[in-house]
Nucleic acid binder design. Sequence first.
RNA 1: GGAGAGGUGGCGGAGUGGUCGAUCGCGGCGGUCUUGAAAACCGUUGACCCGCAAGGGUCCGGGGGUUCGAAUCCCUCCCUCUCCGCCA
Length: 472
Amino acid sequence: MAYGELNRCAPRNELVDFMIVNGGKSGYNIRPNSGKSIIMIDIKKIRDDFEGTVAQLARRGVEKETVEKARDLDARRRSLLGETESLKAKRNAASKEIGNLAKAGGDIAAAKAEVRAIGDRIAEIDKELAQVETDLRETMLMIPNLPAPEIPTGPDSSANKVVRFVGEWKDPAYPIPDHMQIGEKLGIFDFPRGVKLTGTGFPIILGQGAKLQRALIQYMLDVHCQQQGYTEMLPPFMVNTASMTGTGQLPKFAEDLYHSNADDFWLIPTAEVPVTNFYRDDILDGVKLPKITPESPVKLTAYTPCFRREAGSAGKMTRGMLRVHQFDKVEMVNFVHPDTSFQQLETLVKEAEAILTGLGLHFRVLMLCSGDMGFSAAKCYDLELWAPGEQQWLEVSSCSCFTDYQARRLNCRFKDADGKTKLVHTLNGSGVALPRLMVALLEQHLQEDGSVLLPEAIRPYMGGIDRLAPVK
RNA sequence: GGAGAGGUGGCGGAGUGGUCGAUCGCGGCGGUCUUGAAAACCGUUGACCCGCAAGGGUCCGGGGGUUCGAAUCCCUCCCUCUCCGCCA
């Protein structure tokens, strides 16, 4: 769908304006109970430790002027807030007086005029305040999450750090063609007919390949649920604007999403969206909703298809299954206690790794540098599978700790042991994305005779067969 | 798609212009009683913002309006439920 045809979000700025600046004009209840700084890092960090925050953000390429602007707008906001609030206190008291006076039969005309004057003054200040808050919000929107101290500093993927290699790879004596050729021989892919049905980037998987895909999904969900303490969820594949805003796909990345005009629904680009939004605007207090403690996070997993327009990436790594508009993925989401979020991230990475290790695959773990992380992440690990046919590493999982950044936007909180309501920390990780897993699996497990040996772990899900055999 | 009803605190449910941030019930927390538990009884219990604090302010689906003053009146948008129709 052409971006310009989207009814509610034609030009990008208008979208931002529509959803954030004008808030509820869309009619959506995007931010009930909203505080003022909901979409961003904690403004208190800038207030209390300005230089430190500037230094941390500089690692991510944020200019000092931006942070200064936020600081100044925040100061202005608080000053205006103080003014308007003391006037409101005055008006409230005076109005109450008028009520009493009227009951007693006194003359209230003069008092009314006086209070009206106060009301006018309040309206003036509130108008300026609204402008300041809009500016502040827009400024804060440009500020990404604070990077964890231990991650490498750098502008792009070249500065990512390889943390470890897992498994082994030895080139066999015979040549390994790429996954397209392997798939061709196995008769499991049909790209041209995908183009016919829909368009480029919508491949069709056939026969044993389709079954393998289904088997892998079930294998992954079983590992997460039976061995790692996850609860499985089968969520909607389309969500509303409030949900897309909650996890941060909107307003900035509208052009990467598929959108249904008639209903104003969005196709999910990842299960992270519905699963994380499951607890949007909730307080996890251990009564009807689960309880969160440092020892026990809430862990959800879901299989979903994922839909991505991939606008702007035409031509980049688009061969075969490597970058497609629709793909399957199993996703893990954790709602964790702030004290143990980074520790839980390590666990999450291990949980994703267990999937790959269980399939006997060779991969590496990267710690992303400050410049290569997603906007909301404080720390992020990528898992990359070796694809010998492509001669490149393929990202199949990204495991991130968002600290409270995403939770602030989601308005997702919990009751701590001290009785206070606090923001949760959120983590998510792929466990894992299927097309590239399929590619690496085909290429790493290719046998000399053109068959592909199936890992033990997957065989029970494949009716006991031990390999995919060539059909031609 | 047609017709109707309704959106209030963790949940249920009162409240139609002036101590209503909101009666009450449930749930939660604390206590009494009990060997322990249940039951019963007593007490307590919303969120957010500014502030060192005292304190103040905001919030009754979202936005706007009327008014000295709005959960309560008006406009508008969104959502949910029920019945009918259609369909898996």
